[in-house]
Design a protein around this nucleic acid. Structure first.
Lengths: 132, 132
DNA sequence: CATGGTCGCGGGTATATACCCATATTGACC
DNA sequence: GGTCAATATGGGTATATACCCGCGACCATG
């Protein structure tokens, strides 16, 4: 349809790109949002929901719900922090294995996308995103 | 957090940009997704759900639910097409008024975003999106 | 004109996302 | 030590989005 709205175009591009990554990660049983969240947990664990939200620039309640899905999938475990208000998130053993399985899938997808875009567009994309 | 995943970065950028447009359109009582959908309906009305989905590159069931929200807001009306299977969507009078009210808000937002990005990045964005 | 395949939709289910409000815990200040 | 503001969650509600399944309408072919 070729809308002229930057936002609508960006949403369309994001939906398609997410679909590409989701398909690539499907064999690992997770989608790209979960992959990204799991990787952040891995880097920062144990980490509170609020901190995760800050890192991912997502609403805290969104993080809470997304983490709950990961917990149901047994990919992370939730415990109370020293500050009893905080819910601390850490990878489970299954979560670590899932990330290990997903990493090469993600890598191949990322490479394929970069190739499809070409070096110029890839660079433009990185530059653009840093502008938001 | 500065992830290196194109998809994650794009999602973050999209969330932020959508927030900008949503805030700009709030006085009209609609968000940017609804604005975009309403404008497509205006251009093609009366139009079937399947056709709308094709135009917006959205899943048909997604369009169906989004249109239902617009119907509940009295912005569109749904009728059966000549082909009794088709649900035809058309703007209501309120829908037309809402679009008229939203148009200048959207325009100001679009201009502001273009200015914030600068001509080079705006061009890069359009080019990039066409690559997906 | 009967039948079988195709098409359009609606509903069920699920994730991602945001906003608002209630509750529980902390910590600082008197 | 008691009070109160700030902080961290959690739940309710709502939209956006996708996939799958079943039902009813249509149509082409025999």
């Amino acid at each position: 349809m070729s809308s002229s709205c930057y936002c609508t175009l960006l949403r369309m591009a994001t939906r398609k790109l997410a679909g590409t990554y989701d398909a690539a990660l499907a064999p690992a049983g997770i989608n790209v949002a979960q992959f990204s969240l799991l990787r952040t947990v891995q880097r920062r664990q144990p980490v509170s929901l609020t901190e995760l939200g800050r890192l991912a620039e997502l609403d805290r309640s969104t993080i809470g719900r997304n983490v709950r899905v990961l917990e149901k999938m047994d990919l992370v475990s939730l415990t109370r922090g020293k500050d009893q208000r905080e819910a601390m998130v850490a990878l489970s053993e299954t979560g670590r294995e899932t990330l290990d399985a997903a990493a090469p899938l993600w890598d191949a997808c990322q490479t394929a996308v970069a190739e499809r875009l070409g070096p110029q567009r890839s660079e433009a994309l990185r530059d653009l995103l840093s502008a938001f």
